[in-house]
Design a protein around this nucleic acid. Structure first.
Length: 270
DNA sequence: AATGGGAACAACCGCCTATTC
DNA sequence: TGAATAGGCGGTTGTTCCCAT
């Protein structure tokens, strides 16, 4: 197949390697005028001596306006671990649930950060032991960071969690249910005319598309914790997120979560 | 100050599927 | 219907930067 492996003399003219500012500018301006897609044609029309594939990758991974730069937040890391435990190396699928993040970025994170730790601990990243380490130690530790970074006041034993949102996120504490599935209710009251979107996931990486919208009820199975974040900024003073957990007597606490923490010595790793 | 090693990330490659003609 | 092409995906490689020695 010669999809984008251009043949003949054109091949010699194709540029590879790092993109220059001028090339970026050409690509951005062309897409702003004509839109993306038809990448091979686009590359030629824009005057870029690159393959269509290269242009597409550059645009999606780096130049696209809503692309987030910088370190992954603890929330994002947590979600990646969740989703990877469910879907494996389905990077693009995982990336679709992290707005602004690319599959490439997530893949790099996994390889450099997560797999580094599996090497350090001398465990196979595909092993049950690794999955257990993720779910029992790394995720709770990340969750702690999430909670520390949020000024929301969470009472994990309350059946209703309410946060005056100084940030646009609300995190419920660890809990496990005696009965599955259980029902959580999430509502968001926004003073702005623009209603926020809400999403949530459980530790198994189950995403809840039915949670999109300003109010939703969802059924979850095997919950250890639930995480809710609005995808747009709320009014810091007046907006409210409410997260209704299952009744307290339907939940069990996972207090023995960190029994073996010393063994893993996670502080050295994250 | 030089340099070697490792981490992080950008970019490429090859394969596969979807779409178009 | 089948060939050609385009696009998407996961794996891999190359480059740059930082830090320890």
């Amino acid at each position: 197949m010669t999809t984008d492996s251009c043949i003949g003399e054109e091949f010699d003219e194709l540029k590879r390697g790092a993109w220059t500012v001028e090339e970026d500018s050409l690509l951005i301006h062309y897409i702003n005028r004509h839109g993306d897609g038809r990448w091979n044609t686009l590359a030629k029309s824009a005057g870029l001596k690159r393959t269509g594939k290269s242009c597409r990758l550059r645009w999606l991974n780096y130049l696209k306006p809503d692309t987030k730069r910088g370190n992954l937040t603890p929330q994002e890391q947590l979600l990646i671990l969740n989703l990877h435990s469910k879907w494996g190396n389905r990077w693009s699928k995982i990336a679709r649930h992290l707005p602004g993040r690319t599959d490439n970025e997530i893949k790099n994170y996994w390889r450099t950060r997560v797999q580094k730790q599996t090497r350090h601990l001398k465990i196979d990243s595909g092993s049950q032991r690794f999955v257990e380490a993720l779910q029992r130690f790394w995720m709770p530790r990340l969750l702690e960071k999430v909670e520390q970074s949020s000024s929301s006041s969470i009472n994990s034993t309350a059946s209703t969690l309410t946060a005056e949102t100084s940030q646009n996120k609300l995190t419920a504490d660890h809990f496990q249910t005696k009965e599955t599935p259980c029902t959580c209710t999430c509502t968001c009251t926004s003073s702005s005319s623009l209603q926020p979107n809400i999403w949530a996931s459980d530790t198994c990486g189950k995403m809840l598309p039915e949670m999109y919208g300003d109010s939703a009820v969802c059924s979850l199975q095997d919950i250890e914790f639930c995480y809710i974040e609005t995808t747009n900024e709320l009014d810091l003073g007046s907006d409210t997120l409410n997260f209704q957990l299952p009744p307290d007597n339907d939940r069990i606490r996972s207090d023995d979560m960190a029994a073996d923490m010393d063994y893993w010595n996670m502080d050295e790793l994250w």
